[in-house]
């Protein structure tokens, strides 16, 4: 029981962090058709800038300033980089972001060095908020949850209740039509790209100290974000939310089960010889498959339901 409650809470926290990261990516993809490989790099940039700003003027200003800075950088990259390659098609755009991810990592190395940063949870949030069974539950996790839920609600309201949001929604599916109506579609693209980057930056600011802030943090988290947007359905915010929570739960709960195929066989009273064919296959426990499950889910999803859980169209 204890394990389930704690795991449920933790998968909620991690899932919402994942969602914050992937919401920007799914919007960018849905609208511009760009599979942004540098998205996790914006997350890394957010963590580093968040650290730097919090060293100068504290964590709370950093929570606002760092995502805005990342958003401005993102918008600039869209305006002066992506827009240039747009005429060469989606493959070139994708490769551009691929190269961009490389460059951002190099720049971070150049500015902050190779060593992981000493980026810690702020003292004002560093306490135990309640005791769950015997475990302490840290206040910072609750804070992360609050920030991400607030962000989801704000984003949802912005997209459904404001004029800009409605234009963005329209441009998601009918970019040309929106252009015909006299809206500046390139500018909408820039706003969405900048906004998506800022969201990733925000995830970096609050995730960087909770996890580890190091030059490899983008590579470690990058692929899983793609899984989220594919499973959720590209361009769908609700889908990304469901997929984030699902994948977080999948990885968190797999830990709890140490059954292997041998156990399955014993259930049917079959005994394995001492030297079976594929000796490794039988040894694998469910808890070891954590890193494998999301990708399996993604490939299966792409084959059988390419539009994802909530997606409305195929890529």
């Amino acid at each position: 029981m204890e394990f389930y409650v704690i795991s449920l809470l933790n998968s909620l926290v991690f899932g919402m962090l994942l969602f914050m990261l992937s919401s920007g990516l799914t919007l960018i993809f849905g609208m511009m058709g760009v599979l942004n490989f540098a998205h996790a790099s914006f997350y890394m940039l957010g963590a580093y800038l968040g650290y730097q700003v919090s060293v100068f003027i504290g964590f709370w200003p950093a929570l606002v300033i760092a995502p805005i800075l990342v958003g401005i950088i993102g918008a600039g990259i869209e305006r002066y980089g992506l827009r240039t390659v747009h005429k060469y098609g989606h493959v070139a755009e994708l490769l551009f972001t691929f190269g961009l991810a490389f460059m951002i990592e190099e720049l971070i190395l150049l500015i902050w060095g190779r060593v992981a940063l000493n980026y810690q949870v702020p003292a004002s949030l560093d306490f135990t908020i309640f005791k769950l069974f015997e475990s302490d539950f840290p206040a910072y996790r609750v804070f992360m949850l609050v920030v991400s839920v607030t962000m989801f609600v704000a984003l949802y309201l912005m997209l459904t209740r404001t004029r800009t949001g409605i234009i963005i929604q329209a441009a998601l599916t009918h970019a040309e039509g929106v252009g015909m109506l006299g809206h500046n579609v390139p500018r909408v693209f820039m706003i969405v790209f900048g906004g998506g980057s800022a969201l990733a930056g925000l995830a970096g600011v609050i995730g960087g100290n909770y996890l580890v802030t190091s030059p490899s943090m983008a590579i470690l988290l990058g692929p899983i974000v793609f899984v989220v947007i594919v499973v959720g359905g590209m361009g769908s915010l609700t889908g990304a939310l469901i997929a984030s929570l699902l994948i977080a739960a999948l990885q968190t709960f797999a830990v709890g089960y140490d059954y292997s195929l041998v156990d399955l066989l014993t259930l049917f009273n079959i005994e394995l010889g001492s030297e079976p064919l594929f000796p490794d296959l039988w040894r694998i426990k469910i808890e070891n498959t954590g890193p494998l499950l999301p990708y399996l889910l993604m490939v299966v999803m792409l084959i059988f339901r390419p539009k994802g859980i909530m997606g409305e169209r195929e890529s």
Binding site: F14, G256, N288, G290
Partner: peptide, 21 residues
């Protein structure tokens, strides 16, 4: 006697819960 995937785990709290249990 638990083995976790190398450099993939973002959150160790499920493992900590297991140790406590």
């Amino acid at each position: 006697d638990t083995f976790h995937p190398i450099l993939k785990v973002k959150d160790f709290s499920p493992y900590v819960a297991k140790i406590r249990k």
